[in-house]
């Protein structure tokens, strides 16, 4: 007898004994002892339930471990025979289909309507957004614009800076 079986037998004996004494103590009006017996009864019950669940889990694990890697050809054959026929998703496209081919005209009509709507939106956007964007862009670029009298204002009077205005300006100065 292994340890697990001994523990199970012990728990079962505890369950039976405590359950019996629970009622014996109730019959004798010994409430404190009845409560203690009830606690032992519940503890033994929980231990046995947990052991039963763990035993089942262990059996499932063992079955999983002992599962053969290669499937049985007979079972595989049955599964393949019972497989549902592949579904033809585009049967409606075939001309021999008995259904009316209304999908393509509807698609084309919807495309036409959507294209019209898109054209309308584009026209409205062009007429309203462009002036506004140009106005904002002009304001933003204004900060980057050169000063009205270019960066070398007064350079003609300075000998060294006059060089930056080119030989003509310098010649004019010496003239």
């Amino acid at each position: 007898m292994n340890a697990r079986r001994m523990a199970t037998v012990l728990a079962a004996a505890t369950l039976a004994g405590s359950g019996t004494y629970l009622f014996v103590y109730l019959y004798r009006w010994e409430w404190n002892r009845a409560i203690i017996a009830g606690v032992f009864f519940l503890a033994a019950q929980m231990a046995l339930s947990t052991a039963a669940v763990l035993g089942r889990l262990r059996a499932v694990e063992t079955a999983q471990r002992q599962r053969p890697d290669a499937p049985s050809p007979r079972v595989l054959g049955h599964i393949r025979e019972a497989a549902a026929p592949p579904r033809d998703h585009f049967a409606w496209l075939r001309p021999q289909s008995e259904r009316l081919g209304v999908f393509v005209p509807i698609l084309m009509g919807a495309g036409f309507v959507l294209s019209g709507l898109a054209w309308l939106v584009e026209r409205i956007a062009r007429s309203t957004a462009a002036p506004r964007l140009e106005h904002g862009l002009a304001v933003d670029l204004g900060a980057l614009a050169l000063p009205p009298d270019h960066l070398l204002a007064g350079a003609a009077d300075d000998d060294d800076l006059a060089l930056l205005l080119g030989p003509d300006a310098r010649a004019r100065r010496w003239r």
């Binding site: 019959y27 004798r28 009006w29 010994e30 409430w31 404190n32 002892r33």
Partner: peptide
């Protein structure tokens, strides 16, 4: 009697 004995002999 049962009630009294149960109380006296219980771990009261």
């Amino acid at each position: 009697t049962r009630r009294l004995l149960g109380c006296l002999e219980d771990a009261t």
